[in-house]
Structures are given as structure tokens and as C-alpha cells.
Computed example of a mutant assay.
Amino acid sequence: MAISTLLGPLLVLLLSIALATTNANTEGDALYALRRAVKDPQGVLESWDPTLVDPCTWFHVTCDSDNRVTRLDLGNGKLSGRLVPELGKLERLQYLELYMNNLVGPVPEELGGLKSLISFDLYYNNLTGPIPSSLSSLSNLKFLRLNGNRLTGRIPRDLTKLGSLKILDVSNNDLCGTIPTSGSFSKFSEESFMNNPRLEGPELMGFVRYDVGGDCK
């Protein structure tokens, strides 16, 4: 058998191993950036060891058959600190569960790069700032729960383009402006938006009714 015939499959194998290692390193670095950015009094992230190439061995992390991260389950973990933009590098992440912690600061725009995301749960934290319009890129998203934070600003109109969205909850924040009613938002009830004192009623016939009594920020 010719040496070139043997080298072909071997080269493909080596490239596959190299690519898998690169992906694992990138995703491990992204997760470890989160660990550095939060306080962890319960030791929930204790197994997140940056010296291990494969983050799939870490607790609360689930991976697929290609060793790519698909779930991050850190709900009710007593974590405090900030979300990090590096999380946007988890290209196959489907479930981002960080609810019921004490996370502060803004929701990073980079999380709009999580194109595989199905469930995005950040409810009951202390997040501030606007809802990023970049989340409108999450075409596979079915569950978006941001309730119980201190988010401000308007609800991005681009979110109405999320055709797969089944559950939306932005209640108990400080959002302002009017409630979109087009696209996927046509099926959500007032409960999805309640307890936002500066948020006005639904838009009429698709037109935005801008608030007259001051800026919406």
C-alpha cells in the first residue's frame, strides 16, 4: 500500500484531534472567564480547573458527542458577580441556566452569538441596563426569561422576529416605552410584561407610541 494512501486518513485524524482540542480550549477559557468574574461561596464551580483541556469533565457542564458545551446549569448557585462576554463563544450552547443568583451588571451583547440557544434563563438576579437587541439573532430560542431583575430601556422590537419563541417573561423590571405586539409577541399575555411601572400598554396596529412624559432609558 502506498505511503500517500496511509497518510491521507492519518492527516484527517490528526486535524480532527487538533480541532477538537482547540474547541475545548476555547470553550474552557470562556467558562473559566465566568468563574473568575463571580464569587462562589458554595463551591459550585470548584471542579472548573483550567489545567484540564476538556471542560466537559466539570460539574454543571453538559457536552455533546463532539465534546462541545451544550448546557450550563448554574441556577440557584448563590453566585454573585458579572456575566462575561466570553460566554458568547459557546457556539453549541442550547441551555443557559443562571437564574436565581445575585448577578449584576449588563447582559453582554455577545450572548447574541449563541445561535444554538433554546433556553435563556437569567430570572431573579440583579442585572441592569437594556435588553440587548443582539438577542434577536437567537433564531432557535424558545424560552426567554429575564424577569425579576432591574433591566431598563425599551423592549427591542427586533425580538418580535424570534419565530420559535414560546415563553417570554420580562416582568418585574424597570422597562419603559410600549409593548410590541407584532410577530411572535402577538401570542404573549400581559403577564409577560407586568410590574414594569414605566412600561405602557400594547402598541396599536403595529405603531410605536413613544412616551411623551420624558425619555425612556
Rank of each mutant, 00 (worst) to 15 (best):
17 I>D: 01
116 S>Q: 15
184 S>L: 01
83 L>S: 08
34 L>S: 02
186 S>K: 15
197 P>C: 06
19 L>W: 09
118 I>E: 13
96 L>Y: 11
201 G>F: 03
189 S>G: 13
170 V>C: 04
189 S>I: 04
141 L>H: 07
174 D>N: 11
26 T>W: 00
64 D>F: 12
113 G>W: 06
52 L>D: 13
101 N>F: 13
31 L>F: 04
193 F>C: 03
177 G>V: 04
162 L>Q: 10
54 D>L: 00
135 L>P: 11
127 L>F: 03
146 L>S: 09
92 R>N: 15
66 D>V: 01
194 M>P: 00
92 R>F: 12
17 I>N: 02
10 L>S: 01
186 S>I: 01
44 V>Y: 03
51 T>D: 09
203 E>L: 01
203 E>Y: 02
187 K>N: 09
70 T>C: 14
148 G>D: 09
170 V>R: 04
145 R>W: 11
18 A>I: 03
170 V>A: 07
217 K>F: 12
30 A>F: 02
171 S>E: 02
40 D>K: 03
155 I>C: 10
124 Y>F: 15
18 A>F: 01
102 N>I: 00
196 N>A: 05
7 L>D: 01
24 A>Y: 00
63 C>H: 11
56 C>Y: 10
14 L>W: 10
18 A>T: 09
70 T>Y: 07
84 V>A: 08
14 L>E: 02
9 P>W: 02
75 G>N: 12
33 A>Y: 05
155 I>P: 09
42 Q>T: 07
3 I>P: 00
211 D>K: 08
174 D>S: 13
47 S>Y: 04
143 F>C: 00
208 V>E: 10
37 A>L: 02
27 E>C: 06
12 V>A: 09
125 N>H: 13
72 L>E: 08
114 L>N: 07
55 P>W: 01
76 N>P: 00
78 K>E: 13
100 M>F: 12
172 N>F: 09
88 G>C: 13
82 R>A: 11
15 L>W: 05
126 N>F: 11
125 N>Q: 10
67 N>V: 06
5 T>F: 06
203 E>F: 00
65 S>G: 05
181 T>G: 14
3 I>A: 05
3 I>F: 12
191 E>L: 12
183 G>M: 07
172 N>Q: 09
98 L>K: 03
3 I>N: 00
66 D>I: 00
160 T>E: 14
31 L>P: 04
159 L>Q: 02
133 S>G: 07
122 L>T: 10
103 L>Q: 10
84 V>S: 05
